[in-house]
Design a protein around this nucleic acid. Sequence first.
RNA 1: CGCGGGGUGGAGGAGUGGUACCUCGCAGGGCUCAUAACCCUGAGUCGCCGGUUCAAAUCCGGCCCCCGCAACCA
Length: 527
Amino acid sequence: MTEKNGNFYLSTAIHYANAAPHVGHAYEAVLGDIIARYERSRGRDVFFVSGTDEHGEKNIRAAAKAGLSPEEFVGKNSAFFRDLYRELGLGEHAFIRTSDKEMHWPGAALLWKKIEAAGDLYKGVYKGLYCVGCESFKLPKELKDGKCPDHNTYPESIQEENYFFRLSRHRDKMKALLETGEIAIIPAFRKAEVLSFLEEGAEDISFSRYKGEIPWGVPVPNDDEHVMYVWCDALASYISALGFGRENEKKFEAFWPADIHLIGKDILRFHAVIWPAMLLSAGLPLPRSIMVHGMVLSGGHKMSKTIGNVIDPREYIARYGKDAFRYYLGREISPFEDGDFTGEKFIRAYNANLANGLGNFAARVIAMAEKYFGGKIGQSSEDVPLLSTTQTVLENHKTEWYSIPYVVEHITAPHYHGYFENREMHKAFDEAWSLLSLLDGYITDYEPFKLIKTNPEKTQAVIWNLLYGLFYVADFIAPLMPDTAETLKEHIGAKIGTDGVPESFEARPLSAPLFARIETKEGRAEK
RNA sequence: CGCGGGGUGGAGGAGUGGUACCUCGCAGGGCUCAUAACCCUGAGUCGCCGGUUCAAAUCCGGCCCCCGCAACCA
């Protein structure tokens, strides 16, 4: 197996390009970007990839409906995704399109050939319900009262010859790999779900479609009559993105296997069972972990146009900024459970934690530094310990007294990194806000705005501690809110000492509030 | 008996054996550096019934009610 030397490979799912992205897509991208930025800050070389799944009959039909060719149609939607990622402020990342003949097709073809060479492909008969009006197969759940909802006719039961993948052959091996954790499912409670899929049986799956019906796809190697069905087409993007199947591409050797495939719970089966089985068959290394996030609901319901609870990510980014939007997705929603996104909740969280919490704290500290000392705060020899009894952060640490640097180094940082290791990012960020709350308490402890009148030296030490704390708050939230972290650090003006921690500060006042309060009196809070 | 998640102060959520935590809201107090912000205090039979335990929101059994998934929809 390849030694990756600290290289880190993270993928989101590739998204079906039949419509513009919604908040769920934004959510997955932000989670991925948070992990990518964190791993980079830990010194890893990170390859982060997302993309669009562009083939399949649904796209052909949607394109026809829009009066466009499939190429034009998916090109448009794919561009929406790339635009969204830019608006979300994703850091360095790759973007793979399955219709890309140069980047993607060679990898998909090579994977197919390897699976075929392993003897895991055979021709069999695919049985399905076929709607003549749609000219396509229908799944039972797509039907209404047994009829095609578009044509109000009963579909015919017909058969066609397809290639099949011997998934059944890999069932036991897959079970073992999941049970031992060689392929880790994060969070662990999802593992039971996957194992129960395998218990129910992993039957061979249809792996191709007739080209006559669906010409829009990756051709099956050495067979003009078939195109690949979604499995080998879409899933192969995880390795084609690294250059698998292309010459002069070294990324595959450097980055594969994936450290994390980040996916939604709805597609867990394919990623935990079918994809590893395909790799197993092809003799390729298996992904190390599959991280499964929940769905973003709105008002407790799946978003739908009928209910009218669809959240448009671009609207929020445009109104409140990308960092505020990222904040909500990354901290207010657990990465593993379903989350709820409503305008009301967003505004509440924004006001409480960004305007009142972070923004206001930064403003008051920097203002005092500026007003009392012209912004220049040198290190003081005076100890100014915390006096407040805030226990949330201090539990289990029985020392005589706590200094801000002690809390940051021995309490906040270890907790923060511990949570990140488990990918509980929302909890990691909670630590930053706990620190913030403790720093607010510290101001109450010493009342520097009073102290300045009697003891300027001690006041300076207090402000030094506050700026020191704020510097680390900025550091901790950097993966979540990169722009805000940068702005904060600019205005804190820390001079870093030889041991890598801030020694003195040259604070510059903020020209405008970091996060202005959102006033809701006039009922502007939408549902 | 398909699989899974959930029912916690007025609202929304964290919390898987040992003084019940957070946000919003409400009541009272403090402070004035700051974005009417910040700090402190107050209020909860943890869906129902039974069991295990020195100890249960947390474990076990039963019941009631919500919600997802169930082969390509993040």
